[in-house]
C-alpha cells in the first residue's frame, strides 16, 4: 500500500495557492503531517479522501489515480475530519450502522456484529444507545474513529484528532492509533501538536505555506537540530531582550530570574548549556530556520 503524490497543487480562486507542488511518497504505517495553522494540511487531506479536486498534479493510491478512480478509492479510505460531529438525533450504534450501510455492508447480522465490535474497541459499547448529542468531546472523537474503521479502510486520514481533548483522552487516542498502525494500512495524521507525532509516527512531513519543507522520520528532524537547543539563565530585566533575540521555547521562573530553553545556532553573549533536542525543539528550530515567524502565540498553540 502506497500513496504517491506528484507535483500536487491546489489553487483557490485565481491566485491563492493552498498547496504548491507537493511531492510525497507515503507507505504503510503512521504518517504525520505537521505544520502551523493554514499550512494546507486539511486541504491535502481532503484531496486525498476525494472531497476536493486537485488543481494540478497527480495522486495515486495503491496505484489508482485519484481523479479517475474515485469509486474504488472511496472504498479504500476512511476519513475523520477535524470537528467531527454526527446527526444529533441518532444513537451511537445507529450512526455506525448508517456508515456501515453506506460502505456496502449488506448483511444486517454482519453489520451489527461489526458495529458492536468497533464500539467495544473504541470503548463506547456502554453508551451505544446514547444520542450523539449527549456524547462528550472525547467520545465523539472515538465514535468518529469507529465510523472511519467500519469499512476496514486501508488508508485512514485523521485530521487534528487530539485538539480539545483532555490528556487522558489524548493518550487513549494515541494508543488507539498505535494499535491500528500495526496493521498494514496507511494512517495519515495531521496535527499541529508535535506530541501526537513524536509518540506515534514513523514518517512525517512538515508543511508550511502549502509546501513540504521537510519529509523524513521524526528522528531525522530531531537530528537536524542537534546542538541548537540551549539552556540559559536570565535575570528578570533581561527576559524581554532575550525573547526578542532568540526563540524562547520555555521560561521557568527561578530564584533570581528565569531558566530559559531557547533554540539558536550559537549563543555568545552569556553562558549557555546545550541540551538534547526533542521533536518540539526540532520543529521550532526548523520552522525558524526557513524564516517562519515564530511568535509567542504560535508557539503557545504548538504546545
Amino acid at each position: 500500500m502506497q500513496i504517491q503524490i506528484n507535483q500536487l497543487s491546489k489553487r483557490y480562486g485565481r491566485e491563492k495557492y493552498a498547496l504548491r507542488e507537493i511531492n510525497l511518497n507515503i507507505n504503510s504505517g503512521m504518517f504525520g503531517l505537521l505544520g502551523p495553522n493554514g499550512a494546507g494540511k486539511t486541504t491535502l487531506m481532503r484531496i486525498l479522501v476525494t472531497l476536493l479536486p486537485p488543481t494540478f498534479g497527480e495522486v495515486t493510491i495503491d496505484g489508482l489515480d485519484l481523479k479517475k478512480h474515485r469509486k474504488e478509492i472511496r472504498k479504500l479510505v476512511g476519513y475523520l475530519p477535524q470537528d467531527f460531529s454526527t446527526f444529533s438525533k441518532m444513537a451511537v450504534w445507529e450512526f455506525l450502522e448508517y456508515a456501515a450501510c453506506l460502505s456496502g455492508l449488506r448483511s444486517r447480522k454482519a453489520r451489527m456484529a461489526k458495529v458492536d465490535k468497533l464500539l467495544e474497541s473504541v470503548g463506547l459499547f456502554e453508551v451505544r444507545d446514547r444520542k450523539a448529542a449527549k456524547l462528550s468531546g472525547g467520545m465523539k472523537r472515538r465514535l468518529g474513529i469507529a465510523q472511519t474503521l467500519i469499512a476496514d479502510p486501508r488508508v485512514l486520514v485523521v485530521d487534528e484528532p487530539t485538539v480539545g481533548l483532555d490528556p487522558q483522552e489524548r493518550l487513549r487516542f494515541r494508543n488507539l492509533m498505535a494499535d491500528l498502525s500495526r496493521e498494514e494500512i496507511i494512517i495519515i495524521l495531521s496535527t499541529h501538536i508535535v506530541g501526537d507525532i513524536s509518540s506515534t509516527c514513523t514518517d512525517m512531513a512538515l508543511l508550511s505555506d502549502g509546501k513540504i519543507v521537510f519529509n523524513g522520520s521524526p528522528d531525522d528532524l530531531i537530528a537536524a537540530s542537534k546542538d541548537k537547543v540551549w539552556h540559559i539563565s536570565a535575570r528578570d530585566q533581561e527576559l524581554d531582550r532575550l525573547q526578542e533575540t532568540y526563540p524562547v521555547i520555555s521560561a521557568v521562573p527561578a530564584e533570581d530570574g528565569y531558566e530559559l530553553r531557547v533554540v539558536a545556532d550559537r549563543i555568545d553573549d552569556r553562558p549557555a548549556e546545550p541540551v538534547p533536542p526533542n521533536l518540539e525543539d526540532a520543529y521550532i528550530y526548523f520552522m525558524q530556520s526557513i524564516g517562519y515567524e515564530m511568535s509567542m502565540e504560535s508557539k503557545g498553540a504548538a504546545w
Binding site: R46, V49, T50, L51, K71, E72, R74, K75, V77, G78, Y79, L80, P81, Q82, D83, F84, S85, T86, F87, Y98, A99, L102, S103, G104, G144, Q147, T148, A151
Partner: peptide
Amino acid sequence: KRDRKHDTTQVMFVRSF
C-alpha cells in the same frame, strides 16, 4: 443545510456511492 455542516456528512461523502 444539515449536510453542509461539512464534518457531519463528509465522513459519509467519502464513502463509495
